[in-house]
Amino acid sequence: MNWKVLIAGSVVTLPLVALLAAGFGRDPKLRSNALEGREAPTFALNTLDGQPFSLEASKGHPVVVNFWSTWCQPCKIEHPILMGAAENYGPLGVKFVAVLYQDEAAKARAFLNKAGSYWPTLEDPGGRTAISYGVAGVPETFFIDKNGVIVRKVAGPVSQEIMVSTLEQML
C-alpha cells in the first residue's frame, strides 16, 4: 500500500463527496429574500385606469404587494387566494396592491374583468419597481407592515396558510 497516494487521493476525493452529499436535497433555485427585514422601497405608479398610486400614501397600514403577469400560470392559481384574503382582511385595514410584471395592460384588464379584483393593479414601465424589489420571477408577494418594513417575501404562489398567518401577524 502506497500511503502517500492513499492520503493524497482521500484528501482530494472525500471532501468532494462530502460536499455533494451535504448539498444534496438543497433547492438549487436562487433565493432573493435579501429585502426581508428592511424598509420597503417606495414607488409611485399609475393604475391600469390611470389613477396615481403611491406606497407612501398607505403608510400606517399593512400592505401586500403582489407582482404578477397574465402569462404566468401560478399567478392564476394564486388569484383566488388573494381575492379571499382581500375580502377578509381589506376591511381590517390591510391594503392590497398588484404590480404587473413584463406584461401588457390590455391583457391584464381582460383577465381581471373575468376573474375580478379587489385591489388596484399598477403598471410598471421599464420594470423599475420590480427591480427595486429584486423580483426574479412571478408571482412574488411582499408583506409590508405598518412601519413600512418588509416582514416577509414569498416567491411563487402564496398558500392560504402563509397568507393568513402573515396577515394575522402584521395586524
Binding site: L30, S32, N33, A34, L35, P41, Y133
Partner: peptide, 8 residues
Amino acid sequence: FVDRYGAW
C-alpha cells in the same frame, strides 16, 4: 442590486 437580489 445586491441589497435587492442577494449576493448571487
